Simulated scan of single mutants.
Amino acid sequence: MSVRTGLVAATAVALAAALAGPAVAAPAGAGHHGATRAAMDAAVKDGVPGVTATARDTGGTWSATAGVGDVRTLAPRGTADHYRVGSITKTFVSTVLLQLEAERRLSLDDKVEKWLPGVVRGHGHDGRRITVRQLLNHTSGIFNYTADDDFARTYFLKDGFLEHRYDTKTPEQLVAIAMTHEPLFAPGTSWSYSNTNYVLAGMVIEKVTGHSYAAEIRRRVIEPLGLRATSVPGTRTTLPRPSGHAYSKLSRATTGPTYDVTRLNPSLASSAGEMISDSADLNRFYSALLGGRLLPPKQLKEMKTTVKADEIPGARYGLGLIDRKLGCGVHVWGHDGGIHGSTSSAVTTADGRHSLAFNFNGDWSGDSDAVIEGEFCGK
């Protein structure tokens, strides 16, 4: 079962078939990536318009694509395509907060109320009982704003999305939606994936530093690592070039027309999932993170301290980081991300030496687990 942790997945917007296109692979260095290649081709046969992937290990870098980046012109996907990474954003946000902890500017055991007084209140929510750590590992019990029925109809289903795709939403507005619902459980007593947790985490970063979470990610992560394809777009509605198009059914059904959803205002995702990147940059980020280049040992250990996550079988959740045990026994660390027309995964081994990042430019089909298993367990 795929570990789908993203905005689209959280609203139960369903999956259905699209156009399969020609396969294009990098001719050199394919070697042991045959199983990865086969899983990408299978995803296209299953209905994903196109796939782009890059893997990096001690043998070098391998990139490949399958299918199309444009269902109208049948132009293929590119290995350097930019794409919306959805909830992969969460690892960047957690990294910044852990850096701030290392600088003793906050504690993960601080109550949310300390930094955001009065924000987490309503229908049983109480920021005085919830810690920053519980935001990051999804044990806060705070309701997931993207699971709100009105929000889903407005921003994920056809009529609402086509009318509201360019709306700007503030973090405060997103949190306020969650506060109209009761908590999922008492803080620290269970686990449930909630995008609201990371909207609040971004707000905490701003309160601690005096700068937006986007500015802190750029200063602390993007610029030091030279991630030239990675950005925090804010309200920018377009993708940087090169990029393919992104497609969705905008429906709970698995049949029906396919819509081009490439352009949208990502403020609806905020610090829970608005970022843009490419596969090479994601590999560089996760390799640096797991390799100890972004966090001191103490904070990296905290990030990798996991809790049981019943909603994602076969995996455990740390602080913005998923530990996934593959069928061959290999553990990989990373995150998945889903947002309109885009399903992404980025994972790496614990030593950061073998990494994989890839994107499906459709949000309704394809087996991302098969691609990961192919890379780390296949021949």
Rank of each mutant, 00 (worst) to 15 (best):
S2W: 11
T5S: 14
V8T: 15
A10Q: 14
A16R: 15
A18V: 13
V24Y: 11
V24G: 10
A25H: 12
A28Y: 08
G34L: 06
A35T: 07
R37S: 00
R37G: 00
A38C: 01
A42R: 14
A42L: 07
A43R: 05
D46A: 15
P49C: 10
T52I: 08
T54P: 00
T54E: 11
D57N: 15
G59K: 13
T65N: 09
G69Y: 01
D70N: 15
R77W: 04
D81A: 04
D81R: 09
D81K: 05
Y83D: 05
V85M: 15
F92R: 01
L97R: 01
L98I: 03
L100K: 02
A102C: 02
A102F: 02
R104A: 09
R105L: 06
S107V: 00
D110Q: 02
D110I: 00
V112F: 02
E113G: 05
K114S: 13
R121L: 09
G122A: 12
G124W: 03
G124I: 07
H125R: 01
D126H: 00
G127M: 01
V132Y: 07
R133S: 06
R133K: 12
L136D: 03
T139P: 03
F143P: 06
Y145R: 03
A147H: 07
D159I: 03
G160R: 12
L162V: 14
E163G: 04
E163C: 02
T168A: 13
T170L: 15
T170E: 15
E172H: 09
V175A: 05
I177H: 07
E182S: 13
P183E: 09
S190E: 09
Y193K: 08
T196N: 12
T196R: 05
A201V: 04
E206H: 05
V208F: 11
T209L: 05
H211Y: 05
H211Q: 12
Y213T: 00
E216A: 01
R220W: 04
P224N: 04
L225S: 11
T230V: 03
V232L: 08
T235P: 02
T237S: 14
R241L: 09
S243T: 10
S243R: 04
L250P: 09
L250W: 08
S251I: 08
T254L: 14
T254Y: 14
T254C: 12
P257S: 13
T258L: 10
L268F: 14
S270F: 03
G273A: 05
M275I: 05
S277N: 06
L282T: 00
L290C: 07
G292V: 09
P296N: 10
T306M: 00
T306C: 02
V307F: 04
K308I: 01
R316N: 08
Y317W: 10
H335D: 03
G337D: 13
G338N: 14
A346V: 13
A350S: 12
D351Y: 06
D351L: 13
S355H: 00
A357Y: 05
N361V: 06
W364M: 14
D367K: 04
D367I: 00
S368W: 10
D369L: 12
A370K: 12
A370L: 11
E373I: 04
E375K: 07
F376T: 01
G378P: 08
K379Q: 13
K379L: 11
